[in-house]
């Protein structure tokens, strides 16, 4: 049986939503899977809601648009409201509970609450809540393994800014080890 993760990352512009997707896609690439990465684009990118569709699959990706995600990572309430009901039954929803104060209304999905933004602030890396969420996603879905993510992360960080690798990895591990 082939395995496909259709991961939807959603939140505000500036939260690193597209970067989360990029790390996921590069990790899939390192794992020699088929991947696609599709961002929302346009005026909403300038501070409004942003989302990113990442497919990591054992077979070639057909439509890069995700209608029903297997995994939803939400970092603001409007995105949670918008996508909550799209997740496939049995799928996973990862909620930044520091920013989203309501519970999931569904009982046919797995819900993981992570106070990522608060954790990130406490750790003195306020911009890396996205990577804490990513760590939890990685732990619960195992769509790739941690060693693969390290390589994927290295490819996602610009060669000139490799110092970002360590801080991002630290945040991923914080989410993973919750």
């Amino acid at each position: 049986m082939s395995k496909t993760n259709e991961i939807l990352f959603a939140g505000f512009g500036g939260q690193g939503i597209l970067f989360s997707g990029k790390v996921a896609a590069y990790s899939g690439l390192v794992a020699e899977k088929f991947v696609s990465w599709l961002p929302s684009y346009g005026p909403e990118m300038r501070g409004g809601t942003a989302n990113c569709h990442v497919i990591v699959s054992d077979q070639p990706v057909g439509s890069p648009i995700i209608v029903n995600p297997t995994d939803l990572v939400v970092m603001n309430k409007p995105s949670f409201d918008k996508f909550e009901n799209d997740v496939v039954p049995g799928g996973n929803i990862f909620i930044d509970s520091a920013l989203i104060d309501r519970d999931c209304t569904r009982d046919d999905v797995n819900v993981f609450k992570v106070p990522a933004t608060k954790m990130a602030n406490d750790m003195g890396m306020p911009k890396l809540a996205n990577m804490i969420m990513f760590g939890k996603l990685l732990k619960e879905t195992g769509f790739v393994d941690m060693e693969t993510v390290k390589q994927g992360l290295a490819k996602s960080v610009p060669p000139t800014k490799q110092q970002l690798f360590d801080t991002n990895l630290k945040a991923i591990e914080a989410g993973y080890n919750l």
Partner: peptide, 10 residues
Amino acid sequence: DGMIGQMMEP
């Protein structure tokens, strides 16, 4: 189209 322009693939 906008989709192929914006999407990333290996």
